[in-house]
C-alpha cells in the first residue's frame, strides 16, 4: 500500500451560523457567553479521507456542503477544530486566484511577488516569465507595465491561473475557477491541467460541471452537510448526487 499524500482523520470544523459575524466589545461586555451551540454548526464533521499520489479527486455536493472548506483545510488556510489533516507535500491552491495581487503594482511586479510568495526564487521566475505571460495571453502581455487594477476581471484571473499553475507543488487544489474565462482560455486551462496530471500531480477539483468532473477525475467525493456520503468511482458518485438532488435531499 502506498503512503497517502493527503490524509484526514475525523476532521471537523465549526463555524458561526452567520459567517461574517464580528464581535464588538460592547457585545462581549454586556452579553456574556454569547456562543450558544445553536449559533454554531459543523461545516465538516468526521471526514476521513486518504488520497494517494497522482490521484484526481472531484468534490461534489450542494452549496454549503463543505467542499471549499475541505479544500481550505488541505491548503492549510483553515485549522481544524477536531481531528487532523496531514499533507505530505506542497500545495498549489487555485482558490483565491488573485489573492496575492496588488492593484497598485504593475502586472510584472505582481508576477514576481506572487511567485515569490509561493516560494519561487527570482531566477526561476525569470526563467518562466515568458511562459506565464504567453499563457495569460496577448492582452496581458500588452499591459504588463500597467497597474493590475486596470485589468479586466478576465485578464486578472488568466494571469492568476498562469502564475499558480507554474508552481512546482505536487498537489493542485482547484475551486471552481474554470468557470471563468472565455472559451478559448478554458480550453487552454484544460490542456494545462491535463499535462499537470500527466506529470503525476495530485488534483482536487471542486466543480458543479459534470463534463469537467468526468474529464479529469476518476474518483468522486460527495459531501452533504459536512459529511462524506459518497466516495468511489466518479460516475457512481455523480449518480448518487443526482438521485439526492432530485429527491430534494
Amino acid at each position: 500500500m502506498v503512503e497517502p499524500i493527503i490524509r484526514t482523520e475525523n476532521l471537523g470544523i465549526e463555524f458561526y451560523r452567520s459567517r461574517k459575524r464580528r464581535l464588538s466589545l460592547r457585545e462581549m461586555v454586556f452579553r456574556q457567553g454569547t456562543t450558544h451551540s445553536s449559533e454554531m454548526f459543523w461545516a465538516l464533521k468526521d471526514v476521513s479521507v486518504s488520497v494517494c499520489k497522482g490521484e484526481a479527486v472531484g468534490l461534489i455536493g450542494a452549496n454549503g456542503g463543505g467542499k471549499s472548506t475541505l479544500l481550505k483545510m488541505i491548503a492549510g488556510v483553515l485549522i481544524p477544530d477536531e481531528g487532523t489533516v496531514t499533507v505530505r507535500e506542497g500545495v498549489a491552491p487555485l482558490i483565491e486566484l488573485t489573492g496575492g495581487f496588488i492593484g497598485e503594482l504593475t502586472a510584472r511586479d505582481n508576477i514576481y511577488l506572487t511567485g515569490g510568495l509561493h516560494g519561487l526564487s527570482r531566477d526561476i521566475i525569470d526563467e518562466r516569465f515568458d511562459e506565464i505571460v504567453d499563457f495569460a495571453g496577448p492582452q496581458v502581455r500588452a499591459a504588463l507595465d500597467t497597474p493590475f487594477r486596470h485589468f479586466s476581471s478576465g485578464m486578472q484571473v488568466r494571469l492568476g491561473f498562469a502564475v499558480i499553475t507554474t508552481l512546482d507543488e505536487p498537489i493542485l487544489l482547484v475551486d471552481e475557477v474554470l468557470a471563468v474565462g472565455d472559451k478559448a482560455f478554458k480550453e487552454k486551462c484544460y490542456t494545462r491541467m491535463e499535462s499537470l496530471l500527466d506529470q503525476g500531480r495530485t488534483l482536487f477539483l471542486v466543480s458543479h460541471n459534470e463534463p469537467d468532473l468526468t474529464r479529469f477525475c476518476k474518483r468522486g467525493l460527495y459531501l452533504r452537510a459536512g459529511q462524506v456520503v459518497g466516495d468511489g468511482e466518479m460516475s457512481e458518485v455523480l449518480a448518487h448526487y443526482n438521485r439526492d438532488s432530485e429527491s430534494g435531499l
Partner: peptide, 9 residues
C-alpha cells in the same frame, strides 16, 4: 485578509 486566506505561511 485575501493573502492570509490564500497562502499557507
Amino acid at each position: 485578509a485575501k493573502l492570509v486566506r490564500s497562502t499557507n505561511l
